[in-house]
Design a protein around this nucleic acid. Structure first.
Length: 724
RNA sequence: GCCGCUGUAGCUCAGUGGUAGAGCGCACCCUUGGUAAGGGUGAGGUCACGGGUUCAAGUCCCGUCAGCGGCUCCA
């Protein structure tokens, strides 16, 4: 006698078990027609699910009440389309073994092991889509059936797919783990596209839409590779990406959005607007800032430098390399050697080693070696065997060298240590636009967002433990000012906390508790959503990260604030406290932009290349109607330059229509059309980027003053607004 | 690093084993114009690089490098 509670709070009682579809029908035939699935007690389920006990039920339809696509419905649809695609692929490529095919936010994929002699090619897409279209036209129902574990496993073994057997074993383990469910009580489920035994089927937990005919529009998007279980030593699989919608119109809109996103891609715009260049001969992942891009970067740096001044930071400069001993002290070398450029060893040393017949292995051992003194000091101060005895070598065996710096903190620690400090002058805030180098894997490199050399807007705050909350707070408010000025509101915040079950962390439990509380309180006061991420802390302290999405939906970590209990010990840093005794400072690492490269990359996409006036490389372009107005145009440009504005003059032999088009293509904020009429009256005719019309004439001096004001206040007031 | 795809003029891209192409941009000439492309002429190429097959390779094969899409990684 199931009693079924509906979303509006009303309830229906049935004399015997009833399918979700039947309930929908009892509510209305139109609902039943629109239905693609059900939610039973909040769990997504098939429409055919039999309800045999009291539950809450909502019917999932293609659209929500406000006519928007229902995410649950799309989830079902895409999961089902993945099945249809898998069936089609197995028709086109016999012998393809299915592994795993889940839905995603924007579509779905299916990981498939193809026969070695018959890999899938993009050229196969057409044939596969044609097969898929047939299956959709046949409108075959997705039919679920279940088998007890042993019978199910036997079936899979007879079919011989190790991937599906593995999936089943994992499903069984998942449903018995930590529960009282007995192994043989578990049932495995299959979905046949049509009639079990006659039509194609797949081991699958479901749920699915009722039939293939519900799939309105689909497209195979791309091929990629993946590893079985994400393990790079395991089988290599081919991942086929696709997407599906209920209507062709929605699919077209989605594809159009993707196209638009591509046009905002910072790699495309960077070329088009001549902002930066990456040159093979210079090296992968190394950004050359062209004159235009350099202006954007410089404006951002000026902006942040001014904010730092307000917050009591002092600026420092440090070189791009440091000795290996520095990084042995900090702990960067050799623990992170896989993500660093190789050490720089002096030429004569190498020659001598070669002459001695020193082997590579021996050389590495000697380069990574540590003197007894340094090892003893670090071990004592960190209170652990941080440097193991096998790394300790006699001084005459050590090979010294240098390293491109992977981080700025060791240099800053040495600046702090270079003079004595009293608790009275804490915190010490050292800031530097410091360039660091990291050996990112070649496959990871991406435009400006993942590079091998980048400049952090870095700073290290050396403070007392009591000062941590206020300093963390200060860092976050800085990030907030920056993001607000740039209009970046769509970011999320992650607070990385320690893993309660691990003891890899340095620093006392009490210190951690306080620092984590400070980070959480600071994050809370920001007024934006944040997540707690246990286990995501650095080993030396908790951290707060700012994450922004790019136009293609990839997330990039930008700013970061990290509390560090380790560095003080490593570098034997101290300040004299009120008790006249030395104390260890805590160090806060922080970089609100993260790196200038990545930040600018994300910023290009954020503005779609149309920078606000203050950031724009070319703020104003003067367009004379003809050569006859050139002299007047030059006088206008002179006034702009005198007011500190960046402008250019279009002297080309084109008509003004063409000049406007070219200026718009370069996304110049203001175009000033000047002709005989303007020369006569001392005006300029203004066009603002994004407003596709002549705003009207304005006296030159008035424009110059207003534009200079817009520049100075970073867009708080605009010239364009004066015309509205 | 791994898998797949791609690499042709400064940019975007056509190109069927048989003479290297287009549009934009650039230079010059004509045009002197009022709000999103006026007209003409011309320059510009190691078809990523190296090897191979072939009478003949931008095109087919192998390798290398780079870019892209993913996977793995990211102090």
């Amino acid at each position: 006698m199931p009693r079924i509670t509906l979303p509006d709070g009303s309830a229906k009682e049935f004399a015997q078990p009833v399918s979700a579809l039947a309930v929908a029908e009892s509510i209305g035939s139109r609902l039943a027609q629109a239905a693609v699935g059900a939610k039973v007690d909040g769990q997504l389920a098939d429409l055919s699910t039999m309800l045999d006990r009291d539950c809450t039920l909502s019917i999932v339809t293609e659209q929500t009440r406000d006519k928007r696509p229902d995410p649950d419905a799309l989830f079902l649809l895409r999961h089902s389309t993945a099945h249809v695609m898998a069936e089609a692929i197995q028709r086109v490529v016999p012998g393809a073994q299915l592994v795993y095919g889940p839905p995603l936010d924007t579509g779905f994929y299916y990981d498939i092991a193809f026969p070695e002699d018959r890999p899938l090619k993009e050229g196969d897409f057409e044939a596969i889509e044609a097969e898929m279209a047939k299956i959709v036209r046949e409108d075959r129902p997705f039919t679920r059936y279940e088998l007890p574990v042993d019978e199910g496993l036997a079936k899979l073994r007879s079919e011989g797919s190790k991937y599906k057997i593995d999936n089943a074993e994992r499903a069984i383990a998942a449903s018995t783990a930590g529960t009282a469910v007995a192994h043989n009580a578990v049932r495995l489920s299959w979905y046949a596209t049509g009639e079990p035994g006659k039509n194609w089927e797949d081991l699958c937990r479901g749920p699915h839409v009722p039939s293939t005919g519900r799939i309105g529009a689909f497209k195979i998007m791309s091929l990629a590779s993946s590893y079985w279980h994400g393990d790079e030593t395991s089988d290599r699989l081919t991942r086929v990406y696709g997407t599906a919608f209920f209507s062709k119109k929605e699919l077209d809109e989605y594809l159009h959005r993707l196209d638009e996103a591509k046009k905002r891609d910072h790699r495309v715009l960077g070329k088009q607007l001549r902002l930066f260049h990456i040159d093979d001969t210079v090296g992968q992942g190394l950004i050359l800032w062209t004159p235009r891009g350099s202006i954007v970067r410089k404006e951002l740096q000026n902006f942040i430098a001014a904010e730092l001044k307000k917050q009591g930071y002092t600026e420092v400069f440090t070189p791009h390399i440091g000795s290996l001993e520095l990084y042995k002290t900090s702990g960067h070398f050799p623990y992170y050697k896989d993500s660093q450029f190789a050490p720089i060893i002096e030429r004569n040393t190498l020659d001598t080693l070669c002459a001695e017949g020193c082997s590579c292995a021996e050389m590495i051992h000697r380069v990574e070696g540590v003197s007894a003194r340094l090892a003893a000091g670090i071990n004592e101060r960190t209170g652990a065997e941080t440097i193991t005895p096998d790394r300790v070598l006699p001084d005459d065996r050590l090979i010294e060298g240098f390293m491109l710096k992977p981080m700025n903190c060791p240099h800053h620690a040495k600046i702090f240590a270079s003079s004595p400090h009293s608790y009275r002058d804490m915190p010490v805030r050292l800031a530097e636009f410091g360039t660091v180098y990291r050996w990112e894997q070649s496959g990871e490199l991406n435009g400006m967002t993942r590079v091998r050399g980048f400049t952090q807007d870095d700073a290290h705050l050396f403070c007392t433990e009591e000062q941590i909350p206020a300093e963390v707070q200060g860092c976050l408010s800085l990030v907030k000012i920056i993001f607000a000025t740039l209009g970046m509101t769509d970011y999320r915040v992650r607070v990385g906390l320690r893993d309660p079950d691990s003891n890899k962390y340095t620093g006392s439990k009490e210190s951690w508790d306080k620092a984590e509380a400070a980070c959480l309180a600071a994050a809370e006061s920001l007024g934006v959503p944040f997540s707690r991420e246990p286990g995501e802390a650095a080993f030396y302290g908790p951290k707060i990260d700012f994450v922004v999405k790019d136009v293609i939906g990839r997330e990039w970590q930008l700013g970061t604030v990290q509390v560090d209990y380790n560095m003080g010990n490593r570098f034997d840093l101290s300040y004299i406290g009120p008790d006249n005794k030395p104390h260890r400072p805590v160090v806060i690492h922080r970089a609100p932009f993260g790196s200038m490269e990545r930040f600018c990359g994300v910023l290009i996409e954020h503005f779609a290349g149309a920078f606000p006036l203050w950031l724009s490389p070319e703020q104003i372009r003067v367009l004379p109607i003809s050569e006859k107005s050139l002299d007047y145009a030059r006088s206008v440009q002179y006034k702009l330059a005198s007011a500190g504005l960046r402008s250019s003059l279009d002297e080309s032999n084109e008509r003004v229509q063409a000049k406007i088009k070219h200026g718009s293509e370069m996304k110049v904020p203001y175009l000033l059309v000047v002709g005989p009429r303007d020369a006569e009256s001392g005006t300029v005719s203004v066009r603002a980027f994004g407003i596709e019309k002549d705003l009207g004439a304005m006296p030159v001096d008035e424009f110059v003053t207003a534009a200079a004001e817009e520049y100075r206040n970073r867009g708080a007031s605009t010239v364009a607004a004066r015309f509205q």
